[in-house]
């Protein structure tokens, strides 16, 4: 094999290798400068939970423990209590007086969101949950319950790491199914208004049929 042939082979192989590189150089970059920039997350991103409030500031959670019962990772601990009549916490007889989620155990499957009968627990786009000790990974009502105006609490609000523009996206439209899972209810909002968000429009296209005249 001559030297010329060797050189040719080498250049050809270099071209083969760099071809991908050169092709990519002409395309737009996908790397975002997180945490300076935020990528837009998918609509149904399973981020951190929040506990919502009604328009009037009442807590939606009634402490029924269905979320804890359905949780496959057994990371939720709830205890209900009698709702004080003079100073009610939620509209019903019962409210959740202990609500804890161990974020180290949570697998972000959103079964709790599906189980919740009052849309009290939903998932947000918040995803920054690193802590320096295990105790901080257990979120209590202090962290989970939204402010009376509907703004979720965030552990890093001092550091401005979160995109607070996304915090408004913290409501029940994140649910994985249409309200009753049935075509008849497509287009009918199956949830109650939340503080800071109001009544969100129903999701479309869940059941494969578009809403008909009167529903739309």
């Amino acid at each position: 094999m001559s030297e010329q042939q060797d050189l040719f082979t080498a250049v050809a192989n270099m071209w083969k290798g760099f071809r991908v590189t050169f092709r990519q150089m002409r395309k737009p970059r996908v790397t975002t400068q997180y945490p300076k920039e935020f990528r837009e997350k998918p609509q149904r991103f399973h981020g951190r939970h929040v506990l919502n409030r009604y328009d009037d500031g009442m807590e939606k959670c009634i402490g029924c423990e269905l979320c804890a019962g359905v949780c496959p990772a057994k990371c939720i601990y709830v205890r209900g209590a009698d709702n004080p009549i003079d100073d009610p916490v939620s509209p019903g007889e019962r409210y959740g007086y202990v609500y804890e989620i161990n974020m180290l155990r949570c697998i972000f499957c959103a079964l709790c969101v599906e189980a919740c009968p009052t849309e009290a627990i939903t998932m947000t786009h918040l995803f920054e949950m690193s802590t320096t000790n295990r105790q901080d990974a257990i979120y209590t009502k202090d962290e989970l319950l939204v402010q009376p105006d509907g703004t979720p609490n965030h552990m890093f609000d001092e550091d401005h790491l979160a995109d607070f523009g996304e915090l408004a996206a913290a409501d029940g439209w994140m649910r994985a199914t249409s309200p009753q899972g049935r075509a008849d209810f497509s287009g009918v909002p199956g949830w109650t208004p939340s503080a800071g968000v109001g009544l969100r429009p129903a999701e479309q296209g869940q059941s494969g049929t578009e809403p008909e005249g009167e529903d739309a």
Partner: peptide, 10 residues
Amino acid sequence: LDCPVCDKGG
């Protein structure tokens, strides 16, 4: 059907 707040629920 207030099963979620009913002690018998479950």
